[in-house]
């Protein structure tokens, strides 16, 4: 289906393959994420959410199974091609390390464009500034990243994830380290971007509030997706 941003077929992931302590973390995941979808990925700690997200984001490879990004099969790509595809199609927001502190807020937002094009130019600066402005962050543009609060940094990180106009943003507990108010701010921002630009989001979260605010909830338990309609595990 051409309109799928992401499709997983029988994706399995094992760690320590071939060693005595080999363990399978993901046991055959089938999952499709449509264009413009805004989904939450929930599940208990250790259920494999981050592992799944890293595979979806091309940071890690599945042990078996297929992964399609915007219709492209990814299993046969080498590291270089995966890196390029990742840079263009996927934006990341992480829980712990938000921005690169050696750069200003604006430069952090420019970074994905700079990485892709090699040299800084006025167009990418404008693009970054437009993003910051659209998200109401322009007053921080010249602040060094570490001069911003956690909530401010995470909002800049969302802006950075959008710099390449990716089809999909993957966020791994983006509000996990923030106070309730900042968390709400960051979440609202992502919602608004999704509404305005149609960017797909997959947000790993422990917060029921956030999960409720999403259009779809995917639950992962012990490395398996709980079928839709099944009774959710007690939180």
């Amino acid at each position: 289906m051409a309109d799928d941003v992401l499709r997983l077929e029988k994706v399995r992931k094992s760690y320590n393959v071939g060693r005595p302590n080999e363990t399978e973390i993901l046991h055959g995941i089938d999952l499709t994420l449509g264009r413009g979808e805004f989904a939450a990925l929930i599940g208990p700690s250790g259920s494999g959410k981050s592992t799944l997200l890293n595979i979806m984001g091309l940071l890690d490879r599945p042990t078996s199974g297929n992964l399609f990004i915007e219709g492209h099969e990814t299993g046969s790509l080498d590291d270089r091609a995966l890196t390029r595809l990742r840079g263009r199609s996927i934006g990341f927001v992480f829980q712990h390390h938000l921005l690169i502190t050696a750069f200003t807020a604006l430069e952090n937002v420019m970074m994905p464009l700079l990485v892709e094009r090699g040299f800084p130019d006025a167009a990418m600066k404008k693009r970054a500034l437009d993003l910051l402005t659209a998200l109401g962050l322009e007053q921080w543009q010249n602040h060094p990243a570490n001069a911003l609060s956690g909530g401010q940094q995470q909002r800049v990180a969302v802006a950075r994830a959008l710099a390449m106009e990716p089809a999909l943003v993957l966020a791994d507990e983006p509000t996990g380290n923030l106070d309730t108010k900042s968390a709400e701010g960051v979440f609202e921002m992502m919602r608004e971007v999704n509404r305005k630009s149609g960017t797909s989001f997959l947000i790993v979260t422990h917060s029921l509030e956030i999960a409720r605010g999403c259009d779809r909830t995917i639950e992962l338990v012990d490395g398996q997706i709980v079928p839709a309609g099944a009774v959710p595990a007690a939180a």
Binding site: R80, G87, I100
Partner: peptide, 12 residues
């Protein structure tokens, strides 16, 4: 930082 840069598409 290296991890973030790699996630953003920085090559080896």
């Amino acid at each position: 930082d290296i991890g973030i840069l790699r996630a953003m598409g920085t090559s080896r």
